[in-house]
Design a protein around this nucleic acid. Structure first.
Length: 410
DNA sequence: TCTGGGGTCCTAGGACCC
DNA sequence: TCTGGGGTCCTAGGACCC
């Protein structure tokens, strides 16, 4: 095995949410389609068809802006259950070719193709790279033929280079960056194309006159250090195509249900609203507490740290955290969150967002939970939710307030 | 471009212990 | 009582990703 051969593949499903929607409604084909919310409504674009992109729509943009740019586009709220299923199906196809697969997100997978050049060699292949390129083309072809979903892939000697290559390969392409060709491939690209450089770093680089990755590579260390800190060397190397070949950890993003035993670093839920009266704010907090606790219990985990996040209407965002003996009990976390809220809400300004996060998990000792009164109640609630869904059962503090809200609005 | 919701990782300062 | 340095944990905020 040549250590520096291009064997890391990044496989990406093109305009994934839009592509899935088109499977269920073929009339969406060849039209500008935007997934993320109803026309003119709140929310942001999570996926836009190429026809919509041609009108200036970009993912991450507010739905309202997208509506202005593409008033005749078809806007869809999205159906995550479907997306999860097709994501799993695409992964199953990839696993027929290599067991070394990691899902980086719902529409992106990394594959370690080391060894595939021997396993899949065919006499027509001019060299090992050609074999890899052909095999990856077969994978994207199978995803297209069996699922009806377009996919692209980049193959390179490192993970960041493969990621950039998959972007360059779109749509429906496969791009292999040969060993030694990395720096020249990256040099003309805008800095933003490199994973790890976001809008803030992009702006700071531009202020220093650095627009392309080629310029970034040549920039003196004291120009980059204020922007990237200890990551400077890693970023500079990535800009030359050098980086890890480790596939990284599996990201369980976007799962509709929390699988038992699957480890995550944090569980959070948040809600944004236009503006709410304080009494309603408490109902929202109750609901958020219940939801994160429920999700933690489903995973069999207890959290030691509880964090409350609050965003005012002027977008100032603050948070307070508290570390306690591990718990996943609604009542306990309710009390903690309400304490945190009282210490956090120092301004009289309207609240735009509230979020509750659990972290620093310990595995649940189920026996303990059974002996606690509130624990028994949680178990009863969870059983009902197992049958009827999360909203079937709520704590009194949540239901009283939300029903009084309904009465008021009725 | 006035900006959702779920995550991960990094940094910097302070408390506390030895 | 004061001083130093290292290690670890906690907290708050921010950048980034999809």
């Amino acid at each position: 095995m040549e250590p520096d051969a291009p064997r890391i593949c990044c496989l990406d499903l093109d305009t994934f949410f839009v592509s899935v929607e088109r499977l269920f409604d073929p009339s969406l084909e060849n039209k500008p389609v935007v997934v993320g919310g109803h026309k003119g409504g709140r929310g942001v674009v999570t996926s836009a068809s190429y026809e919509a992109r041609a009108l200036g729509v970009r993912s991450g943009m507010s739905i309202r802006d997208a509506t202005k740019l593409a008033p005749r586009a078809i806007f869809l709220p999205g159906s995550h259950d479907r997306y999860s299923k097709y994501s799993d199906d695409a992964r199953a196809i990839v696993e027929r070719y290599s067991p070394l697969v990691r899902a980086a997100s719902i529409d992106e997978q990394y594959i370690d193709c080391h060894g595939c050049e021997r396993l899949y060699y065919r006499p027509g292949d001019v060299d090992a790279d050609a074999t890899i390129r052909r095999v990856v083309g077969e994978i994207t072809g199978a995803i297209g033929a069996e699922l009806g979903l377009p996919a692209s892939a980049g193959i390179a000697t490192s993970k960041p280079m493969a990621k950039v290559a998959s972007g360059l390969a779109k749509p429906r392409g496969v791009l292999l960056v040969a060993a030694g060709a990395e720096a020249a491939t990256l040099a003309p690209l805008p800095v933003r194309k490199l994973p790890g450089i976001g809008p803030v770093a992009e702006r700071k680089l531009r202020e220093r006159g650095l627009e392309t990755l080629g310029q970034l590579v040549l920039a003196p260390d004291d120009e980059l250090r204020p922007i990237f800190g200890n990551m400077t060397a890693e970023i500079r190397a990535a800009a030359r195509g050098i980086g890890t070949t480790e596939l990284g950890r599996e990201r369980p993003a976007f799962r509709e249900h929390d699988p038992v035993g699957e480890r995550v670093g944090s569980i959070s839920n948040e809600r944004t609203f236009v503006e709410r009266a304080p009494s309603d704010t408490e109902a929202v907090l109750s609901g958020l507490c219940e939801r994160v606790c429920w999700r933690a219990r489903k995973r069999g985990m207890k959290a030691r740290t509880i964090t409350l996040k609050l965003r005012y209407v002027d977008f100032e965002t603050v948070s307070r955290a508290m570390t306690v003996p591990a718990t996943n009990c609604d009542i306990e976390i309710h009390h903690l969150v309400f304490d945190l809220y009282r210490s956090l809400r120092t301004r009289s300004l309207g609240v735009r967002l509230l979020g509750v996060a659990l972290s620093k998990f310990e595995l649940e000792g189920a026996q303990l939970l059974l002996f606690e009164r509130s624990g028994r109640r949680s178990i009863a609630i969870d059983r009902a939710r197992e049958k009827f869904g999360f909203d079937a059962v709520h704590l009194a503090s949540t239901t009283e307030r939300s029903s009084s809200r309904k009465r008021r609005s009725a």
